[in-house]
Amino acid sequence: MTDNDSLARLLRTARPPASVDRPSRDLWSLVECRLQEPAEWSWVDLSLAAMIATTLLMFPSWMFVLAYHL
């Protein structure tokens, strides 16, 4: 038995396979609910928005530059 076989044997005992092979409930209804939820703002989006707002407050003239490029 190699070292890896021994480790694999330990892992198989510590993390045995689950005895079920199908979901216990209807998952489609959960997916549908999830699809109807409004999109969440991630912290990246929020940080970016806050950064732009702060920059524009500090340098209002940049608004025109931004407007020109949009």
Binding site: P16, P17, A18, V20, D21, P23, R25, L27, R34
Partner: peptide, 20 residues
């Protein structure tokens, strides 16, 4: 998913999230 997470409840959550 079950092969990776080894827990049926978690695997169900993975399915929902993955399809979403």
């Amino acid at each position: 998913a079950l092969r990776i997470v080894r827990d049926p409840g978690t695997a169900e959550d993975v399915v929902v999230e993955a399809f979403w």
